[in-house]
Amino acid sequence: MKPPAFDFLRPDTQEEVLETLHRAGSDARIIAGGQSLVPMLNMRLARPGVLIDIMPLHALRAIREERGEVIVGAGVRQAEFEAWPQLAEKLPLLSQAIGWIGHVQTRARGTVCGSIAHADPSAELPLSLIALGGSVRLASRRRRRTVPAAEFFLGMMSTAIAEGEMIEAVAFPVAGRGTGHAFREIGRRHGDFAIVACAAVSDGQTTRLAVAGVDDHPRRFDLPQEDGGALDDALNDIAWSLNARDDLHASARYRRELVRRLGRETVMEARSCRS
């Protein structure tokens, strides 16, 4: 199908974006790479009155490190982030996860912040942001605010972005010394939406496990430094707490089993690769 009709704004400044968002409210949508939004337009699941293209705004297209965080601007494409020379050193979890996002052909256009804004329950970037305890930087005409990842994802494709607000950047905390990271995913084929994806971060005291693809948004759990039966029990509790559902791709039971097994592998790998 083809997109419905909409006005298209190519702004010269971010103030114009915020002004238009303020004026048009929920009738306006930001478009960056368009790899989630254009399919929704084509299928007419989204019918905005005005689309605002933020890619001409060069200030939003930078990756920079600031006070222990990597700040990724709203115009940074996934392929640019993937090619960032410091990715493996600063964000080892992302360097493992990013190759799982869609395909080469969609990462070339799609942006990091666009995936966060889209908030698909099985998406790798929201999962990674939750696992690392990052945050989302929002701007509106009136104010700027930073929302922790744990408070940002509210449900299926639902986030804390309020009317009139846009994502300016997301912030990922730089990997601490002596922490281990692991990412695992199971899908029908590489590049498909994950049935279950797991990300783990271990600092020797606790291991944090984040799970996507099961509940309606990615969720995060702290696991004690236990092994064997105690870890199995904890993972089983997590599996049952995630409101797993049956759908076309997998049964709820299969998803719970993946949380137990894939979760265990991810936790063990994160613990073993602590530097």
Partner: peptide, 15 residues
């Protein structure tokens, strides 16, 4: 597009 493979159906002409 600019040397990288991309889906023409996921790009608006205006972009």
């Amino acid at each position: 597009v600019d040397g990288a493979p991309a889906r023409a159906c996921l790009i608006l002409a205006a972009q």
